[in-house]
Simulated assay, not measured.
Amino acid sequence: MIGSALSAVFTPGVLWLDIAGIGHLVQSVSGGYLAAIVFFMLNGIVFAGVQTGIVIMVMDYDDDDSGPRRGVAMPVLVPATIHKRRRQDTRLRR
């Protein structure tokens, strides 16, 4: 919501100040209103992403490893020796 609000303030400001000639293009081209709508939506996405990044970076990091940790128990692989038995000759001898 804040990203959309910032975009609602930023987009008319860019169009009114005619930064990089965008305001002139929106007013002079027949489909300029569509470009202004797309510009507003994309800026809303950018500002929402910035807001999300700021919230994640400001989050408190809990690095308390003193308590018990529970997780999935993993089996411990132990090497075993295998003894090969001699195979008895089961063929008929002539």
Rank of each mutant, 00 (worst) to 15 (best):
M1N: 11
M1A: 13
M1F: 11
I2D: 09
I2R: 11
I2G: 04
S4F: 09
S4G: 14
S4L: 13
A5P: 01
A5F: 12
L6I: 14
A8H: 08
T11D: 04
T11N: 00
L15V: 06
W16V: 07
D18H: 03
I19C: 03
A20I: 01
G21S: 03
G21C: 05
H24P: 06
H24Y: 01
H24G: 01
V26M: 07
Q27Y: 00
G31M: 08
G32Y: 01
A35Q: 00
A35M: 08
A35E: 02
A35C: 08
M41I: 14
L42N: 09
L42M: 12
I45Y: 12
V46C: 05
G49K: 04
V50R: 05
V50Y: 02
Q51F: 12
G53Y: 14
I54T: 10
I54Q: 04
V55Y: 02
V55A: 06
V55T: 01
V55F: 05
I56V: 13
M57N: 12
V58E: 05
D60Y: 04
Y61L: 11
Y61K: 13
Y61Q: 12
D62S: 13
G67Q: 02
P68R: 05
P68M: 03
P68G: 04
R69Y: 10
G71Y: 02
G71R: 09
M74L: 13
M74I: 15
L77E: 02
P79N: 15
P79R: 12
P79K: 07
A80W: 00
H83V: 15
H83L: 05
K84M: 04
K84S: 08
K84G: 08
R85C: 05
R87G: 09
R87Q: 13
D89Q: 12
R93M: 11
